[in-house]
């Protein structure tokens, strides 16, 4: 399988999220309250990569209703649009995404764990895929949080597999504003011979007011050390609670 396809496939991974989330790439351990539906939208981009100059930058739009099914489970049904320089905008894929909390959403314990599983169904080329994540967080009494998200993107055909790891931290600045930072890496495991890890680091800022929240941030690739890593991956996310 061409290396660029694997790279694009990896970067097609758009985690479904819901509820307040101060991180732009990691799934938090927070979920939408039971019986509540949020409409979420993301816009994000992946810049060029020095090692593959023929691969153009890509832009994505992700949209989904996200529903709190129970005190433990949240489900999203996203659709994704993809656009690139000089190429038409296409409906890229649908997903069915479920996140299950180990403890109920009302738990006040500082340690929380969430499991995520998603089915990725492409509509304009690409591989069907299963995404899996295990996310753990520890929240301190002052509201600061540390988080570890370990995941995998597994092509159903078995042709490719990519591991992901995200180490993140956040802290409240005010009741409405939260600052986050992430160290994120994609780790090609299968189907990408010669592909090196793609590490990124970057900040994010989340603002919540009433029924609306928005998170913005950018991941900066450690491209000087890993030339196959894109320079930038900015992301803007927002949601409205119905």
């Amino acid at each position: 399988m061409p290396r660029w396809l694997v790279l694009v496939g990896v970067l097609c991974w758009l985690p479904a999220e819901a509820g307040r989330r101060p991180y732009i790439w990691s799934f938090g351990t927070e979920t939408v309250p039971e019986g509540v539906v949020e409409l979420e939208q993301w816009m994000w981009a992946k810049s060029r990569t020095p090692a593959t100059p023929t691969v153009r930058s890509v832009n994505w739009v992700w949209w989904a209703p996200v529903s709190g099914v129970s005190q433990h489970v949240e489900v999203a049904v996203p659709l994704q649009l993809r656009a690139g320089a000089g190429r038409p905008t296409v409906l890229d894929s649908f997903e069915l995404d479920a996140r299950v909390r180990l403890k109920p959403r009302t738990s006040q314990d500082p340690f929380q764990m969430t499991f995520r599983g998603a089915w990725h169904q492409p509509t304009s080329g690409g591989e069907r895929r299963v995404d899996l994540n295990v996310i753990s967080s520890w929240t301190f009494d002052n509201g600061a949080q540390l988080l570890l998200d370990v995941g995998g993107l597994l092509a159903v055909s078995g042709a490719s597999a990519v591991g992901t790891v995200d180490l993140a931290g956040s802290m409240p600045l005010t009741d409405e504003l939260r600052l986050g930072a992430e160290l994120f890496a994609e780790l090609p495991v299968r189907g990408a011979a010669g592909e090196t890890p793609h590490p990124f680091v970057g900040p994010s800022l989340e603002w919540t007011r009433g029924r609306f929240w928005v998170t913005a941030g950018v991941l900066v690739g450690l491209t000087p050390l890993f030339p196959q890593t894109p320079h930038f991956m900015p992301r803007l996310m927002w949601a409205v609670v119905l």
């Binding site: 019986g35 709190g68 009302t106 929240t139 009494d141 509201g143 409240p172 939260r178």
Partner: peptide, 13 residues
């Protein structure tokens, strides 16, 4: 009711 940065919300049931 809850830790800083969180709100008590039991959801709809």
């Amino acid at each position: 009711a809850a830790a800083p940065g969180r709100k008590m919300d039991l959801g709809k049931y």
